[in-house]
Design a protein around this nucleic acid. Structure first.
Length: 574
DNA sequence: TGATTTGTTAGGACT
DNA sequence: AGTCCTCCACAAATCA
């Protein structure tokens, strides 16, 4: 029907050339506005309908050619074919269902409950306030639940150290198995203790990973490229384990050169340690503890590997001392109802206060000095060595500070948080009045995290404006009116939504590469190097969920990355 | 102005 | 296979 019109190249759909021709009989419309020639892409059609059909065909073809349809299909397939979650790791104990009768509400019947308390009711029903006020946020709940609140802010205790047995038992009947306490104690005594680097612990020698900085010829760019390209996550049975019950907020790897011991902290205060290659007949290598009552956002081993520091939203910093077999409380924020002698006295300002971040002060080879940031924009330094005191407590922001990072020079520190800026501070020049940052980097939106690279050349900031911003030599910035510009800005979807822990790009402890989770399909963990073009997204059968928090093993002989997801599973990439 | 609500988002547990 | 639950994440819009 269609005639090829060779001379119609100039005829476009927007400027049809009008010519007269005889109308088909069925077309009775004499309206001058109706086009008399139905031309589309150089082809003249007899009827309007034919032209429309041709146009539709063209559009269909365009859609097919674009690959959108197959991409859509693949996406659907991907979601349909979603693999079941890896079963290795902690398991809920099966609760025998013996009840044959339907449960009746004692509350509705008006019967007082005895010895029952709300341990952790989901939000929207009961909010258990820290100061002992129990407020129901829903109007239909008239009776207040019988809440047992033995400890300040619902913490696990009032500050005493916990034994391994206690920490295991606190995980609750849901998770504790008959052999849990025994296997955990054995793991600490037979494995963890032997992984402590005595030279580092006793002689204050820098750990191996730091010592090999830059001088090692084997760490060439080629080596790095090969190592990164060799990373994989394929074996579901070996690479993934459920380590904690809830969403992972904090993750780290033990610094031992030969073993992979991953530790993860979750939203509700659990800490799980996974001896990745240490599965036995009685235990699959995962040991679960609970010694916090709020999200464990930070986990960090001392460089000798003898202590695991944990910072939690519950306002406490604890240290799992492998040799003492104890989870010792190092720091706890309290309000003014406490004694003034209490370390952390008066810091807790109530409702909207919590401790967001904690990290070891890298200047000293000890867990006794650490930094803490808070939801109200303050940054603290605690030194337990001499008098055991808060060395400084500075208001560095109007809003929450998500991370702190100290430059290897020992005095340049950056803070990043909801005020959308990465601020540079000089710890030698903290004024008596209000601190003014040396420099500021504006990230557009909130800063999820900002860290100095191991040698301090770069800062990588993960921002809510969907970028990974790399700033070079930020610590050298001087006070000036010029805003700091990023050296590189990598587009990166950081919209994790409220069910997923936010992304934090984190450096290798001694190499200039960093890892970060990703929303991309298939799920992957990304590795970037700022000064080379090295970029890799590692995906594989074992990586089925978004790894919100990732970190590198300190080894420079081989690369190992661990990632934690929103169901408490840890994935090992190596 | 501060307070409150809503949109976004993924994964597993349960029925 | 489908429904429910998560709800100290943050941004933007709307309310008081």
């Amino acid at each position: 029907m269609a005639r090829k019109n060779v001379s119609a190249v100039s005829q476009t759909a927007t400027s049809p050339k009008r010519t007269t021709r005889s109308k088909p009989e069925d077309e009775t419309n004499d309206d001058v506005l109706s086009p008399e020639v139905y031309s589309f892409e150089g082809v003249v059609y007899d009827t309007y309908q034919e032209m429309v059909n041709a146009k539709r065909q063209r559009n269909q073809q365009m859609l097919r050619d674009s690959g959108l349809l197959t991409a859509k299909e693949e996406l659907i397939q991907m979601q349909m074919k979603r693999k079941p979650a890896a079963s290795q790791g902690i398991k809920k104990r099966k609760v025998e269902v013996t009840a044959t009768e339907r449960r009746k509400s004692k509350r509705i019947a008006g019967i007082e409950s005895e010895n029952i308390y709300v341990e952790n009711e989901s939000a929207g029903r009961f909010t258990i306030a820290s100061d002992g006020n129990t407020k129901s946020t829903e109007g239909d709940v008239e009776e207040k639940p019988n809440v047992r609140e033995e400890h300040y802010r619902n913490r696990v205790n009032d500050g005493e150290g916990l034994s391994i047995e206690q920490a295991v038992k606190l995980t609750g009947s849901k998770w504790v198995q008959e052999t849990s306490v025994e296997t955990a104690i054995n793991f600490v005594r037979d494995e963890l203790v032997h992984l402590i680097d005595r030279k580092v612990a006793n002689n204050h020698v820098s750990p191996k990973s730091v010592r090999s900085l830059g001088d090692d010829e084997s760490l060439s760019e080629d080596w790095l490229k090969t190592a990164v390209n060799q990373l994989s996550v394929e074996d579901v049975d070996k690479c993934v384990a459920k380590v904690v019950p809830d969403r992972i907020y904090g993750i780290t790897v033990h610094p031992s050169a030969n073993q992979v011991i991953a530790a993860a902290g979750d939203k509700s205060g659990y800490v799980g340690i996974w001896n990745v290659d240490g599965a036995s007949k009685v235990n699959d290598g995962v040991h679960l503890f609970k010694y916090h009552s709020g999200a464990v956002s930070c986990l960090e081993w001392t460089s000798s590997g003898s202590k695991l520091l944990s910072g939690s939203y519950d306002g406490t910093v604890r240290v799992f001392d492998v040799e003492k077999e104890s989870m010792v409380q190092h720091f706890a924020t309290v309000d003014e109802s406490f004694s003034k002698d209490h370390l952390g006295y008066g810091l807790d300002t109530g409702y909207s206060f919590w401790t967001q971040y904690a990290c070891i002060d890298g200047r000293f080879m000890t867990d006794q000095c650490f930094f803490v940031s808070t939801s109200i924009g303050t940054a603290l330094h605690v030194d337990l060595r001499s008098k055991g005191q808060v060395t400084f407590n500075r208001q560095w922001s109007e809003k929450k500070i998500n991370t702190l990072s100290l430059h290897p020079n020992g005095y340049s520190m950056i803070s990043g948080g909801l005020d959308c800026t990465v601020k540079l501070w000089d710890l030698r020049k903290l004024s008596k009045s209000q601190d003014i940052p040396v420099a500021e980097y504006f990230g557009g939106k909130s800063i999820n995290s900002a860290y100095f690279s191991p040698k301090g050349r770069f800062v990588v900031a993960t921002t809510m404006s969907d970028k990974l911003d790399i700033v070079m030599d930020f610590h050298l910035e001087k006070r000036s009116s010029k805003p700091t510009k990023p050296w590189k800005s990598i587009r990166h979807d950081n919209k994790t939504g409220r069910w997923l822990t936010t992304f934090n790009a984190r450096w290798h402890p001694s190499l200039d590469i960093f890892c970060v989770g990703s929303m991309a399909h298939p799920r992957r963990i990304e590795i970037f190097s700022p000064d080379t073009e090295l970029v890799r997204g590692v995906s594989g059968d074992a990586l089925t969920a978004v790894a919100s928090r990732c970190c590198f093993h300190p080894s420079t002989d081989r690369l190992i990355v661990v990632g934690g997801n929103s169901s408490g599973r840890v994935t090992v990439v190596r």
